[in-house]
């Protein structure tokens, strides 16, 4: 009898604690909705398309921040994707066994560096470098394209995108590496037997086999970029404007919350910031939820 009690207790307790994770998600959604009630009631769906952010007159719109968040993440992805795939190919197909673990470790360490350190490094090292060497050159040769127009001041969309790309490379690279590792050796050997070059085996056998997992890896990286706060806040310039230029300062959802939350004086102001958090939560949850499905499906095959 006593025996069964102990068994039942641990089963019950562990079930309760596990259910707390589900409860937690519900609590997060509830708290965010409750906090943004005031702002949702006042602005409704117009909040999403308004470009004004004016705390003095209490007019709040999320569009510049949504724009900044998505564009900086897309830039990050454009830079990070080819490099990450390159690293994953190197780690799973090319690297000599002797150096594979240490290179893997170093790429994973890139993910372990706190984002505030990226921000610090970005602000004091990367931004001056961009301002002095990269942006003037780009604007001299491509200045007529709006993308590279404007004054090169270092901080801005380009700096934000680059720092984000460095931060998502380890995420995309390590998941892609794991996924490439699940491709059966037999398929690759069949390719080589047909006289394919190494790159042909990688691009025509390994990549197609990993397609859905790769999509998941990319979405996870993108989701991480969307929610990243400190590093971006320190280098993106923090101005709620929508500009075609990569050099122009911008603002992301996470950054505006980080910068203005403690200074928000009125209830509507706080509520608008919480609604921004709700939007960010919703976008990144969608990307995460889909990405997890894609990645786990691929891993089950293994």
């Amino acid at each position: 009898m006593k025996l069964a009690t102990g068994d039942r207790t641990i089963r019950f307790l562990s079930t309760v604690f596990a259910s707390m994770i589900l409860l937690l998600i519900a609590v997060i959604v509830y708290e965010l909705f409750k906090g943004s009630e005031l702002s949702i009631g006042r602005f409704g769906l117009k909040f999403l398309v308004t470009t004004t952010w004016d705390p003095v007159n209490e007019v709040f719109g999320a569009l510049p921040f949504i724009f900044g968040t998505i564009v900086s993440s897309v830039i990050a992805l454009i830079i990070a994707l080819p490099i990450s795939i390159g690293i994953a190919v190197f780690l799973s197909e090319l690297a000599p066994q002797a150096i594979r673990p240490s290179v893997s470790l170093m790429i994973e360490l890139l993910a372990a560096i706190p984002s505030i350190i990226y921000g610090l490094w970005g602000l004091f090292v990367m931004v001056p470098f961009l301002q002095m060497y990269v942006e003037p050159v780009l604007s001299r040769y491509f200045g007529s394209i709006p993308l590279f127009g404007g004054v090169p001041i270092g901080v801005g969309m380009l700096a934000g995108g680059i720092i984000l790309s460095i931060m998502i490379i380890p995420t995309i690279a390590s998941i892609s590496r794991d996924i490439f590792n699940t491709v059966p050796m037999l398929y690759k050997e069949a390719g080589f037997a047909l006289g394919m070059t190494r790159w042909e085996v990688i691009s025509k056998i390994v990549f197609p086999h990993s397609r859905s997992g790769l999509t998941g890896a990319v979405m996870l990286g993108f989701g991480r970029a969307l929610g990243e706060t400190m590093a971006v806040t320190m280098v993106i310039g923090n101005a709620p404007s929508i500009s075609a230029s990569l050099f122009a300062p911008s603002y992301t959802i996470a950054s505006v919350i980080a910068n203005e939350f403690t200074e928000a004086t009125t209830k509507l102001y706080v509520s608008s910031l919480i609604e921004l958090a709700l939007i960010l939560f919703a976008i990144s949850m969608v990307f995460n939820a889909v990405a997890r499905l894609l990645v786990s499906r691929e891993r089950i095959v293994q």
Partner: peptide, 16 residues
Amino acid sequence: FADVLNGIPSIVAGIV
């Protein structure tokens, strides 16, 4: 959902 929660932006955790 534990995996999904793992992707929650840290600033949102702060707001909550």
